[in-house]
Nucleic acid binder design. Structure first.
Length: 312
DNA sequence: GACGCGTGGCG
DNA sequence: TCGCCAAGCGT
């Protein structure tokens, strides 16, 4: 729950005791927004009139994928499929092919399925409310709120990995965010959010941006941080994080993930169904190869065509 | 809540 | 070189 005023009187920036509490949440928000106006990147999805569909596509592509790799693919994608209806009319496999090497190709399949649902269940319009967005395949807690907030200006806390890190440091005085907890994370961001929807929207975007380019995971640029004087982590002398951490990623080389990627690359590159003999060439270990192939079939990324394999 | 899921760049 | 990291989601 919000409940804190903060709208008036920014004179008492205080912060004498270190990190911000509800008292100066408004100051933190204001400082981050002011910094964002000055230093935020000019990204395609932030342009006026970019549209809810474009924003939705961008958010899906940005899931675990760096901005620099998304931008060119996004532009091509929207040129080819400028509306949900256009994408829904294509074969799912065309979406997987157009995804190219963005990674996590299930996102392409989910995006196609979401476009189909939007076309058939929402009159071709990207839904505005969080529950409807959450019901779409491939859209979870983060993406649903990001679309509602950034495409439609609704006032929701939007919490991604960057926001979690900023809150962990500035508010909680911890160097790392630890494992995510949707409930806690949304409540923490809600504390920072101004009552005005427009200010709330820019607070969401600005906090994400701050985490992306200043309050970074490694080597944060505290000298350039607009809230360095309010930061609890800094006030405490940058204590080393001792709490729980998410499980580390597993090695990619030799993993099932790699094999899946190689098989899918083979299918993307072929106009015709790929034979089992050709699949064998992709990876020598048969047990691992079969496991990867079964997984792809189960995920619907690959389908049978007689004895051969192809994209859906 | 933990785990599996791609790919590439960077320190 | 190699481990970490990058606007998460579904099971």
């Amino acid at each position: 729950m919000t409940a804190e005023p903060s709208a008036v009187d920014d004179s008492a920036a205080d912060a004498s005791a270190g990190g911000p509490s509800a008292d100066n949440a408004g100051t933190v928000s204001r400082l981050i927004r002011a910094w964002f106006v000055e230093h935020g990147r000019d990204l395609p999805w932030r342009r006026d009139g970019f549209g809810a569909w474009g924003i939705l596509v961008s958010e899906i592509m940005l899931q675990q994928t760096p901005v620099a790799r998304v931008i060119p693919r996004l532009e091509q994608w929207l040129e080819r499929w400028p509306t949900p209806e256009a994408l829904a009319a294509a074969a799912p496999g065309d979406a997987v092919r157009a995804w190219e090497r963005l990674g996590y190709p299930r996102r392409a399949l989910n995006l196609h399925a979401a476009a189909t649902a939007i076309t058939h269940n929402h009159g071709g319009m990207v839904p505005e409310d969080v529950p409807s967005l959450l019901a779409l395949p491939g859209i979870g807690e983060y993406t649903a709120r990001a679309v509602a907030a950034f495409a439609y200006g609704h006032r929701h806390p939007v919490v991604d990995t960057n926001v979690r890190r900023v809150i962990a440091r500035v508010v909680l005085g911890q160097g790392e965010a630890g494992p995510p907890s949707t409930r806690r994370d949304l409540a923490a961001m809600e504390e920072l959010l101004p009552a005005d929807p427009t200010d709330a929207q820019s607070t969401n975007a600005a906090t994400m941006e701050l985490g992306a380019i200043v309050c970074t995971a490694r080597k944060p640029l505290c000298q350039e941080c607009p809230v360095r004087d309010l930061c609890q982590w800094r006030a405490d002398g940058y204590p080393v994080y001792e709490g729980k951490r998410p499980a580390p990623q597993k090695r990619f080389e030799g993993s099932d993930r790699q094999v899946r990627g190689l098989i899918l690359a083979e299918l993307r590159a072929s106009d015709v169904p790929v034979t089992p003999e050709e699949i064998v060439q992709v990876w020598p270990d048969s047990a691992q190869r079969e496991r990867a192939l079964d997984g792809l079939l189960r995920d619907g990324l690959v389908v049978l065509s007689g004895a051969d394999y192809e994209l859906p």
